[in-house]
Each structure stands twice: as C-alpha cells, then as structure tokens.
Design a protein around this nucleic acid. Sequence first.
DNA 1: GACTCCATACCGACCGGTCGGTATGATACG
DNA 2: CGTATCATACCGACCGGTCGGTATGGAGTC
Lengths: 202, 202
Amino acid sequence: MKATHPAETTRQRILRTAFEEFYRYGFQAGSLNRIVEETGLTKGALFHHFAGKQELGYAVVDEVIWPRFQSIWVEPLEQSADPIKDLQRLLRRMADDGPGFGVSLTHGCPLNNLAQEMSPLDEGFRRRLEGIYAAWRLAFKNALANGIKAGTVRKDISPAKVAAFLVAAIEGIIGTVKNAQDPRLLREAGDALLDYLERLRA
Amino acid sequence: MKATHPAETTRQRILRTAFEEFYRYGFQAGSLNRIVEETGLTKGALFHHFAGKQELGYAVVDEVIWPRFQSIWVEPLEQSADPIKDLQRLLRRMADDGPGFGVSLTHGCPLNNLAQEMSPLDEGFRRRLEGIYAAWRLAFKNALANGIKAGTVRKDISPAKVAAFLVAAIEGIIGTVKNAQDPRLLREAGDALLDYLERLRA
DNA sequence: GACTCCATACCGACCGGTCGGTATGATACG
DNA sequence: CGTATCATACCGACCGGTCGGTATGGAGTC
C-alpha cells in the first residue's frame, strides 16, 4: 500500500479509493461503508473531508478523473501537425495498454460510466462530465484544424463534426467491448475506426 | 392508464413499469417498492410473478427490450439491397423521433444503459445483453454483405468490422448526446456518421 | 519555557429510513 | 376442494448521514 502510494494524504487516499469503488459498482451502488473499510479509516474521517456522498463524487470527477484524462487525451494532441498519426498512435496504445490508460476491458471508461449513470439524475455531475467531454472534443477539433492547416488532413471535412463523431465512436467502442468482453471485437471495431481516420488524410 | 394500455395483464404491467423504472434510475438504484407503488399492486403480486429483482431484470431484457429492439433494428434491414440508404433512413428517423425509437435524448438507449451498468457485475445480464448486441451486429453485417452483392456497397470493406464500428458509433453518439443534452451535438456527430456511411457506397 | 486557546484530524456508536425478500391469509375461479 | 392470484404485515440488512468525544499540534501570552 504505502509502497505504491507513498506519502499519500488521508484525503487523497479517500479520493483514490472512492474512485475505484465508483468505477466498479457505479456511483449510486457504490458504498461509503466499503470505502471507509477499504481505506482503513472511519466514517468520521470521511465526513470530515467531504460534506457527503455527492460532494465526494464531484471531487472524484474534479480531482481524479479530470487530471488523468487531460494528461492522456488533451496534452499529447496539443501542437500536433499530423493529428491522424497521433490519434492512431493514441488509439493503438489504448488498445494495447488499456489499464495504463485508465480504461479496463471489463469495466470500461470511468468518464463514460459515470456520465451514463448520473447525467440524467444529477445536474452537478452532468455539468462536470460535460466539461470534460467538451474539452475532449475541443482537443480533437483543434488538432484536426491544425492538420488541415499543415496539409495532413483533408480540407473538406468539418473539424467540429469529426471531433464529435470520434469522441462518440471511441466511447462507443469501449462500451460495446466492455459488454462483449472479447478482445476480437475491440480489434474489429478498432480497425474500422483506424480506417476511418486513414480516409481523413489529405 | 387503461386507455393507453388496454387489457394488460398484471405481469405485463409489472414488466412495463419495471422497464421504465430501470430505464430512469438504472437497475441497482431502481426500486421494487416504487414499481409496486407505480403499478398500484403490492409486493405479493410482484413476487408471485417474479422470483426476485434479478429475475425481473432478466425478464425486462428478454420480454421488453429484446422484442422492441428487434422490430426496430433487425427486421427493417432484412433483405435490404441498399443498406446504406436504409441505414441512413433509420438513423434520420431515430434522430427525428427518438422516443418512438425507444431512445430518449436525456435518458439514452435502454440497452446500452443496462449494459454499461450491469455487464461487469452480473453475468446473466451480460450474456443476455450481448445476445442483443450480437444480433444487432449480425443484422448490419448481413445487410452490408447484401449491399456488396447487390453492388451498392464498396467491395473492399469488411462487413463484420464496419458492422461492429457502426453499432459502437451509434451507441456512442446516443451516449454523448445524452450527457450533453444538446441536439446540436446530435446533429454534428450524426452528420459525420451519415458522411461515413456515404463513403461506403460502391 | 510553560501554559492557554483553539482549529484540525479523526474515531466509532448511533440514527431514521429504505432496501429486497418472506410468511401468511383472503379471494376468486376451475 | 384445489389452485392461481393477489394483499397485508413484517423481517433483517444495509444505506447515507450525524454526533459527542479525543488526540495532536501550532500560535499567542506571560
């Protein structure tokens, strides 16, 4: 424990444990008692750092999911002159090393899991998650626009539309593969996505 | 009630109410007490017809979701000689009349909702839902193969790969739009999908 | 340095309420 | 009478959340 998470504050330990709990069981079915048990702390400690389950959920989005996502999907695409190549590289790495990308084959994408469950029920969740999605689409849109400027991407496509489609397709693939629990499906749908990207080249 | 659902048996009323409950709150957070209250029946009636919550959930998949899905996505595509045209028509109809397709802009796709929540937690759910997804992909794959044979679809594509990608993309679009709650996003991603379909033409 | 004061961090028993599920009985129908 | 179809009453488990209390340590005062 301490080896893998050195010098972790109590608040950070709660956040990390809560993230894993909600990732596994969903937010509503996730149990504060289990989080307390898992951290080795108590109810008192948890409620000292967070006002309630909802606040804890919000904090997981803001302080765990959002930073992880940004370092994986936003930063690598900034100042990309050949977004198609970089996107294909990102997708291949995600397929080869799902867990390292925060995406498990069986548990799917934490961002999408939370969004599908909570967005219709809690506006605070929806707004936060939508912010991440919007940043994702913006990163793709900018990268595609850069590609067009650099001459690596076809000029007749709409960066905004393609970006929206790409985000949806990626989440859709992760979701359907999570349900099938079959790497072959990941390969098939992934190949089609890579092929789609290939046809965006100038 | 009786006007919109004439001569409905008790079992059917429970199933329909349970479907709506699980569609709104998810399976785990869905409440049997609310279902009982909503139907105007009692616990005794519910447990007379279903052995428990899990069995009720399975029955909702088998007897509500699966038939609805089949009539919408499988049957219209059988014996299609121009699957691209028919697919585009289906997609446009879904975008224009979501609720009629069992897909709400704010609540998403019932099939995908259940799959994302329950597949990692319950193998019975996963197997049943995967059966529906497999049928979906098969329907698309057969339609694309028919299109190739009829000369309406490009010969150099893999029907299986494109089918897997299409299913994923559709679910992904529904999911991201559900989170954004913005019809403009549906329009953007949908346009990109229609464009992708267009480029499959022979 | 010694003492007061007080905020922070954390503990663990306990609360009301809801959950899925069960046992038993009434009613109606063959 | 027997069986199917419900209603009523109730159970234990678990839920998120509260509350009184304690240990620690830093700041201020003399």
